[in-house]
Structure formats: C-alpha cells, structure tokens
C-alpha cells in the first residue's frame, strides 16, 4: 500500500465511521441474530432451540410460501417498470417551462404525505365495487367495473394503482437529478437542431442515469418487500391473492409466533433480492453515466 493509498484509507474510514458504527450495532447485530434464529425453533417468548436447516426444508413444501412468493414476483414485474416509466415521465413533464410549476410539483407529491391509515380507507372507498368512484368513472365509458379489492383477478392491479399513486417520491428524486444537468448541453444540442425528444433521449436520460439506476435498484428492493399498504388495505385477501412475501413472513413471526421460520423466510428473500439486484446492476453496466468518479 502506498502512502497515498494509506491516507485515502484513513480518510475513507473517517468519513464512513458513523455508518460503520451504525451498520455494526443497529443492523449487523440484529441481522446476524436473525440468521442464527433461521436455524432455530424460536417463538420469541421462549429461548431459541437449534434445529439445523429444518425451517428451510419446511419452506420448500409450504404452499402458502410459494403462493406469497409468486404473488410478490408478479406484482414486482408489473409495478416496477410502470413505476419507473411513470416517475420519469412525470418528472420530465414537470421539468419543462410551465406555469404554476411549484403547484403541480406539490400536487404530484401530495399522495406521499398522506398517513397510511387514511390512505387505506381512501382507496378502499375508491375501489369499492358498488359506490366507488373508479367504477362510477368507468361506467361513463360503458364499462362494468369489477369489485376490485374482493376479486382475485383485480385485487393485485388495484394495489399496483395504489402504488403508482405514491410515485411522487421518485419524481422528486428525478427532479433533483434533472436540475443537475448542465444547461449548456441543451443549448449546444439546440444549436445542432435537436428536437425535444432527441434532447431527452441523448442528453437528459444519460445524464440522470445514476438517479434512474438508484430508483430501479431501490424499487427492486422495495417492491419485493411490499407490506404496509396491502396489509392495511386487503390483509392479504381475497383467498390470498394479495398475500405478499413480507406479509406472510410477518404472520409467521408475529401472529403464528414462528420467528425462526420467519427468519428463514427473510434470508431466502435476501438471496432472491440480492440476485435480482445484481441482475439489475449487470443490466445497467455501460448504461449508467457518472460525470464524477
């Protein structure tokens, strides 16, 4: 190690010191304990008893586990691309020279501010098969809407829609990224006669690719752990059509008191998410442009 490298190591460690502490105390200790529990029969209220890989072998034959995994993957495959496209589209829309821009930005961000309980009641009412506004609106086009949340086919799409409503979070991140795109790039492009689409395609998207990368990776991690909204809105029903992975994990941990089993589920999910994230990372190689390091 050269002196330069040593100095950099010290500097790097100093800058990340708070996180290294936090990582080890508040994350690694609980995580390693949960890894240990995954090999135990652990009911939370009684001390864990080591049982080897039994939790993992039971998982493979647990039909509900497979169902919840299946539900989650289907949801992810639909919700993630939709969310990404919509997030970027709205951000681009808002980044144009328009009147009342602050107002529009606030509007798109509003849903992210609503507390979960209120949000759930709100959407249950909107999706209501009889009196819901959504079906009322559909009826204008002569469509007889389904009973969204109580129909096994439509419950998942309903949750996807609810999720899209909260896209404002990623819009804000995209907007912050868009602001970092140097203006002279556009001016140069305009001089060359590039139209809006060409500018977007060849300047904007590459320039905010680190932010898109961030949102896709975080989206993958987040969407596979979807929990709060369906837990409050559907409770996993009807007939487990919206029972997602983390919900079943929660049931096992806190309602069935099989914490060991839940920990095994957690680590299986960890492997799946890590695999998919790695895949997303590989896909992005060569497409993410970093101006800096």
């Amino acid at each position: 190690m050269t002196r330069e490298q040593k100095r950099n190591l010290v500097k790097g460690l100093l800058f990340t010191a708070p996180w290294i502490l936090g990582l080890s105390i508040f994350t690694m200790i609980p995580a390693l304990m949960s890894l240990y529990y995954s090999f135990c029969d652990y009911s939370v209220l009684n001390p864990p008893v080591f049982i080897g890989a039994k939790n993992f072998t039971s998982l493979s034959t647990d039909a509900v586990f497979w169902k919840s995994l299946n539900n989650t993957l289907i949801y992810a495959v639909v919700a993630l691309p939709l969310g990404t496209v919509m997030g970027i589209a709205l951000a681009l829309l808002l980044n144009q020279q328009i009147i009342a821009r602050p107002l529009f930005r606030t509007i798109f961000f509003l849903p992210s501010l609503v507390p979960l309980v209120a949000l759930a009641i709100l959407w249950q009412w909107i999706f209501n098969g009889e009196f819901g506004v959504l079906n009322h609106a559909l009826s204008w086009f002569g469509i007889d809407g389904p009973n969204w949340l109580t129909d096994t086919t439509w419950a998942k799409p309903a949750l996807v829609i609810t999720g899209l409503w909260g896209v404002g979070n990623s819009v804000v991140i995209y907007l912050a990224g868009l602001q970092d795109v140097p203006r002279d790039f556009y001016e140069a492009a305009r001089v060359d006669g590039a139209n809006w689409w060409q500018q977007t395609r060849h300047i904007t998207i590459p320039m905010i690719s680190p932010v898109i990368y961030f949102n896709v990776i975080m989206g993958t991690i987040g969407v596979l752990q979807i929990f709060a909204v369906p837990y409050v809105m559907t409770g996993g029903g009807p007939a487990r059509a919206t029972l997602f992975y983390t919900m079943y994990l929660f049931d096992q941990a806190f309602r069935y008191l099989n914490m060991g089993y839940a920990c095994a589920m957690a680590w299986v999910l960890f492997v799946i998410v890590a695999g998919l994230t790695l895949f997303a990372h590989r896909m992005s190689k060569g497409h993410v442009y970093y101006g800096g390091a």
Binding site: I121, F127, E130
Partner: peptide, 16 residues
C-alpha cells in the same frame, strides 16, 4: 359470486 361480492364491498369499512 360477483353480485354478492359487490354487496360485501359496498360495506367500505364496517365500523364506519
């Protein structure tokens, strides 16, 4: 089934 579900879902939240 669908009609019954519609009735059930008409009940937004029981306790409201």
């Amino acid at each position: 089934v669908k009609d019954l579900q519609a009735f059930r879902s008409a009940m937004v939240q029981f306790d409201t």
